[in-house]
Simulated scan of single mutants.
Amino acid sequence: MHDLVEEFEITFNQIHQHLKELNGFPKNDNFVELLQHSKLKHSVVRVHFDQLKQYAKLRNAIVHERISGDYYIATPHEDVVHHLKSIKKTLEQPPEALTFATRPVLFFKTDTNLLHIMEAFGQHGISQFPIYDETRCFSGLLTNDGIVRFLAQRADNGDISLLHAEASDVLACEKHANVQFLSTTASVFDLEERFETSLNENKKLKAVILTETGQPDELPMGIVTTWDLIKVDRRDQDIS
């Protein structure tokens, strides 16, 4: 029984340390407070939030309400210790962001004919495509909304021919899209942090593009939108 209590305490303290790290080591490092803050940003914590709150109560009972010596008012079940270790392992080794990205990424060049891109919209059911210039540097996101604006502008000018229209022409009509880049080795925590930060800054993040080292002059190996983040929660729920 003493071994179980010791394992529980050690594992709980390690999780506490991870929560501090996730929150930038704030002055108020109360476990439940850190849990509340982390829940808003990270799916792993969100999924296990209620269980971790209960484990915090058990930990307090073990530490602060010990009757004498090795006699505890409450002791953890073996399954509880096993589950706590599982949560700790996920916090230590979170899945890579690439796990939740759309792959492979279909992208086009700035001089790609618009009719070809519109055909791809219909075939793949995708609402946006990354566009790259001749140096393979990211130029912007071409979206179905951007195409509608482009067509409306052409119609106003009395020119509805698309024979010679290119991706670059539509990009000129696109609203500025907030797109960020991460390396393919980034964790799901890094990914969620980007979306959370943009939300706090009131700058909607349209997509995160994953490249080999996280630079915009590298070809995309994965793309993540807010819709893809739903897969993060679902995966963690399945694991739990």
Rank of each mutant, 00 (worst) to 15 (best):
M1K: 11
H2E: 14
V5K: 09
I10H: 09
T11V: 06
F12S: 07
Q14M: 11
Q14W: 01
I15M: 05
Q17N: 13
L19F: 04
L19I: 03
L19Y: 05
K20H: 07
L22M: 11
L22C: 01
N23A: 12
F25G: 02
F25K: 08
P26G: 07
N28H: 04
N28M: 03
V32G: 00
V32E: 09
L34G: 09
L34E: 03
Q36C: 02
Q36A: 08
Q36P: 01
H37C: 05
L40M: 10
L40E: 15
H42W: 14
V45I: 15
R46N: 15
H48S: 14
Q51H: 10
K53C: 15
Y55K: 06
K57L: 13
N60G: 05
I62Q: 07
E65F: 08
I67A: 09
S68D: 15
S68Y: 13
S68F: 14
Y71F: 15
I73G: 12
T75N: 12
P76R: 12
P76Y: 10
H83G: 13
I87K: 01
Q93H: 15
P94V: 10
P95V: 04
A97Y: 06
A101S: 12
T102R: 07
R103F: 02
V105C: 05
L106P: 00
L114R: 00
I117L: 01
I117P: 02
G122P: 00
G122W: 00
G125M: 02
G125K: 05
I126D: 00
Q128T: 02
P130L: 01
Y132M: 02
D133P: 07
E134L: 09
F138S: 07
F138H: 05
G140P: 01
L141E: 04
N144A: 07
I147G: 04
I147C: 08
R149Q: 06
R154M: 10
R154I: 01
D156M: 14
G158E: 10
D159N: 13
D159G: 03
A165C: 10
E166V: 11
E166P: 05
A167S: 11
A167E: 00
A167W: 00
D169K: 03
L171T: 06
E174Y: 06
H176K: 13
H176R: 14
V179P: 04
V179W: 03
Q180D: 13
L182S: 08
S183H: 04
S187G: 11
V188A: 12
D190H: 12
L191F: 02
E193L: 12
F195V: 08
F195L: 11
E196S: 14
E196T: 06
N200L: 12
N200P: 00
L205E: 04
A207M: 06
L210P: 13
T211N: 03
E212C: 11
T213K: 08
P216E: 05
P216W: 02
D217Q: 05
D217H: 09
E218T: 08
I223Q: 07
T225F: 05
T226A: 14
W227P: 00
W227T: 15
K231M: 03
D233V: 07
R234Q: 15
R235W: 15
D236F: 12
